[in-house]
Lab assay of single mutants.
Amino acid sequence: GGTTSGLGELPSGWEQRFTPEGRAYFVDHNTRTTTWVDPRRQQ
Results as ranks from 00 to 15, higher is better:
V27D: 02
P39K: 00
W36N: 07
F18V: 12
P20H: 14
S12H: 10
R40F: 01
G8W: 05
R32T: 06
E21K: 07
R32W: 04
H29W: 07
R32Y: 06
R23P: 08
R17E: 12
T33I: 15
A24K: 12
W36C: 05
T35Q: 05
R40D: 01
G2A: 10
W14L: 03
P11K: 00
T35I: 00
F18T: 12
R23V: 13
A24D: 11
V27N: 03
Y25R: 00
E21Y: 01
V37R: 07
S12R: 09
T34K: 04
S12C: 08
E9T: 08
E15R: 02
R32E: 08
R32D: 04
Q43A: 13
V37G: 08
L10W: 05
N30A: 09
T31F: 05
T3P: 02
T19E: 05
T4P: 06
R23E: 15
N30C: 07
G22T: 02
L7K: 11
P11V: 00
S5Y: 13
P20T: 12
F18C: 13
T19P: 03
P39W: 00
R40V: 04
Q43T: 13
T4H: 13
G13F: 03
E9P: 09
D28E: 03
D38S: 04
T35L: 00
S12L: 07
Y25W: 08
T4E: 14
G6E: 14
F18K: 11
V37L: 11
G6P: 09
Q43Y: 15
Q16E: 12
E15T: 06
E9Q: 05
P39Q: 01
P20S: 14
N30R: 08
G6L: 09
D38C: 07
W36H: 10
V37H: 13
P11D: 03
F26P: 01
W14V: 08
T35R: 01
G1K: 15
A24G: 11
F26A: 01
L7I: 12
T4Y: 02
G13K: 06
H29K: 08
V37D: 09
P20W: 05
S12Q: 09
A24F: 10
